[in-house]
């Protein structure tokens, strides 16, 4: 896993705990929002850093595009990269 993932989870835990403890206190709204922002930032980070690698295509017929322009297309449809999750996907037929 990425090394910064550990840092991210560490910050997430601290900030969630901070928001939980500070939610009852009235005079500490600034610190409360600080923790809330950190928590949401880190959760966005974890969300995207998990999703984007899943969009990396698996190996398909990579030789098709290696034929030096002898065929009309050098990037074959077979090798087009499609996302799978989570924003829906349009698989090429």
């Amino acid at each position: 896993m990425k090394p910064y993932f550990i840092i991210a989870i560490f910050i997430l835990v601290i900030s969630v705990l901070g928001t939980l403890f500070l939610s009852n206190e009235s005079g500490m709204t600034i610190i409360f929002f600080l923790f809330a922002e950190l928590a949401s930032l880190v959760s966005f980070y974890i969300f995207f850093s998990v999703i984007i690698p899943s969009l990396f295509p698996e190996y398909r017929n990579t030789d098709e595009n290696f034929n030096c322009g002898a065929s009309g297309i050098y990037l074959n449809q077979e090798e087009m990269y499609t996302p799978k999750t989570p924003f829906g996907s349009v698989k090429d037929e």
């Binding site: 910064y4 840092i7 880190v42 980070y45 995207f48 984007i52």
Partner: peptide, 9 residues
């Protein structure tokens, strides 16, 4: 995207 998200954190 991976680079951007790393940079964002």
């Amino acid at each position: 995207g991976v680079r951007e998200i790393d940079l964002m954190l």
